[in-house]
């Protein structure tokens, strides 16, 4: 006979619990390893890396690789560092995220509260946009940007990312607004509020969680995008990801691993920051609307 334990759904036995935590910690360490390697090696002098011992802590601590990666590493023709490209990325990401989020919210509002014949089909088609691989649209998009005179500009990149993002943002906002009480909209109509007044005064102020989801999602995707940046950006509008590639892939001179590591961390920082600041809303927003509707 087995001994009766005090296991319940919430409290498991001590041994089981220790085992679970042990495995979890191991996995966590495993996932943290690359970040550790990057962080440690980005503050070592180059000869310490080339001498082996990738996992060792630095003997000599230096921030020189960070400074170099940011402001005077050789990227392309000039030794500018990643700095100008960082600002290129910001100039592309901020408007693209803002526009696609606002448009997604408007779409969601119309698709749920101002329904019309064929709205579900239209929504289905917009969802389809989420599943089109980037590579397919490269050539048509290049042609379109050329015709519109936006080739090689930040504006062109913003347009591409807005078009690609609308499918996702519409999906988020539509599902969120689907469970938003329609009686509120009707009450506002009787109160005399118009289409946009209802949107700005009633709907948007209640959209915090889903707006955070949309912003995180769009920010991460657009910031990390390499393909569109490499394909459509001009010399003075290249985003961070493309610049980082150029830095790492440069075929002349010595491979400065410490600078590369620092540059890679710099490129990843903004998305990390967004996630840390707004991350706790992310899951909450994703779950909203999933219970009902």
């Amino acid at each position: 006979m087995s001994v009766a334990t005090q296991d319940t759904a919430i409290r498991t036995g001590r041994v089981t619990r220790t085992l679970i935590y042990l495995i979890l910690i191991l996995f966590a360490l495993f996932y943290m390893l690359p970040l550790y390697v990057m962080a440690v090696n980005s503050v070592k002098p180059l000869d310490e890396i080339t001498g082996g011992g990738m996992m060792n802590l630095p003997k000599v601590f230096t921030l020189e690789p960070w400074a170099k990666a940011w402001s005077y590493a050789q990227i392309g023709v000039d030794p500018t560092g990643l700095q100008p490209y960082f600002w290129n990325s910001i100039k592309m990401v901020v408007p693209a995220v803002a526009i696609s989020t606002v448009l997604g919210a408007l779409n969601g509002y119309v698709l749920t509260k101002w329904r019309f014949r064929g709205d579900t089909i239209l929504f289905g088609l917009m969802l389809f946009a989420c599943f089109i691989p980037f590579q397919i649209v490269l050539i048509p998009m290049a042609r379109m940007l050329g015709l519109m005179g936006m080739a090689g500009s930040t504006g062109g990149l913003v347009l591409v990312h807005v078009v690609y993002g609308i499918g996702f943002t519409t999906l988020y906002f539509r599902n969120y607004y689907a469970v938003f009480p329609t009686e509120l909209i009707r009450a506002a109509q009787i109160d005399g509020a118009g289409f946009f007044q209802i949107f700005w005064r009633i709907l948007l102020p209640s959209s915090g969680p889903i707006a955070v989801v949309s912003i995180i999602w769009q920010f991460t995707n657009i910031w990390n995008d390499f393909l569109f940046g490499a394909s459509f950006a001009g010399a003075d509008s290249q985003p961070m990801t493309v610049a980082l590639n150029n830095l790492v892939q440069s075929s002349t001179g010595v491979k400065e691993y410490n600078v590369h590591f620092a540059g890679a961390i710099l490129a990843a920082l903004p998305t990390l920051l967004v996630y840390v600041v707004a991350g706790r809303y992310f899951v909450r927003g994703l779950m909203a609307g999933s219970v009902k509707g």
Partner: peptide, 11 residues
């Protein structure tokens, strides 16, 4: 109109 759910603007 007074609605069943009251429909007060939550914000």
């Amino acid at each position: 109109m007074v609605f069943q759910s009251y429909a007060l603007y939550p914000n």
